[in-house]
Design a protein around this nucleic acid. Sequence first.
DNA 1: ATAATTTGTTGAACAAGTTCAACCTTTCTA
DNA 2: TAGAAAGGTTGAACTTGTTCAACAAATTAT
Lengths: 211, 211
Amino acid sequence: MVFQISIKYYTLVRRLTYSKMSHRLLKENIKKHVRINSKDLDTICSFFEPKYIKKKEFLLTQGDIYKFEGFVLEGCFRVFTIDKKGNENVLHFASKDWWLMDIDSFMNQTPSHLNIQALEDSQVLLISRTDKLALYESVPIVEKLFRIMSQKAIVAWQRRLIRNHSLTAQERYIHFIENYPKIASKLTDRQTSSYLGITHEFLSKIKRSKK
Amino acid sequence: MVFQISIKYYTLVRRLTYSKMSHRLLKENIKKHVRINSKDLDTICSFFEPKYIKKKEFLLTQGDIYKFEGFVLEGCFRVFTIDKKGNENVLHFASKDWWLMDIDSFMNQTPSHLNIQALEDSQVLLISRTDKLALYESVPIVEKLFRIMSQKAIVAWQRRLIRNHSLTAQERYIHFIENYPKIASKLTDRQTSSYLGITHEFLSKIKRSKK
DNA sequence: ATAATTTGTTGAACAAGTTCAACCTTTCTA
DNA sequence: TAGAAAGGTTGAACTTGTTCAACAAATTAT
């Protein structure tokens, strides 16, 4: 009996500790973007709920309406579309400390064009659309936070387009594995090639010629 | 004498009228993105000053630090980088009712990677960095405005990347002229090809084969 | 109006990347 | 643990797009 209680107690403490830990990563992330007081930070984080997703499971499937925004605590995701020809196009990956959103579907509540799939057992913090919209109103700095995050994202997309236009597939591959070694090491060649915009066969040939 | 005065008066009235007209386009643009009261709208617009730029002149040159953000009233611009191999890569064009910014340089006050050049005699409304930063503080809805504009821009960049990965050069060319006929009609083939990420020779061959 | 420059067109040789098919290795699953 | 499924490699033929060079057409500056 005593033993059981102590297990329960231990579990409870672990959960709380864990929960604080998980929000800590989110807090650190937010503080990278804006100066923010701890009250606002606590309010923001209080709306994020942890969720566990198993390898190969989907957080979002093409056609769904996206009702959550996510922040990755652990694991790795791929965000991709399937085009008319049936090919998968990876927009990006998201591992620990990255955000997961489908801005288009979330903003306009239209069916999503994107799929978000876990590449390994993963944990995310999710905020519902309702709570997010409420946060924009009640905690004004949230607007600034996402304005700044969005602007940084635009810069990243611009640079990626330029790389696609000015570099060969081999150069893009080298850039990718050098700049995102942690993510790259978790991927199959098929996933990497889809991100780079080439076939997996050609990636295989690039790797051979590099040696 | 009387004649001279009347000319002066006419010019003054025209300027005032013109200035209101020009801010009207900006106001309409802003109202597409956010619900906003007319006082805030007036405050925002009051910081934008008109500027005329002649064909081929630059609003920004690679290496400069960007100190303004612009809104195009008339004319057309191209935003491009020159990479190490000396090739021009057009990020995008901006004609009437579009925004002109170099987010990276403007945010971080680092030397710009971009060039912004007028393709024809053009007019823009410019806001200085100082005024923009002050606006973010004094008119909170400005944060929301640029947050939403930025998020729409991200969606556009994502779609463009997917087109680059999933469509042939010919399909991208057709998409471009069908979706941006006004801008496309103002461009030389060299400019169009640089936007599409192909050589101008190959664009010429695409056009021939299309007939 | 003329010269100079930029732009567009075309062809031939070439390079980059795809497709398809075969085969092997690894990983998942019953 | 066997069988199935998925991932990786390789080669040959093919397609897409580039490069370079030459020339014609259109703009621009003088």
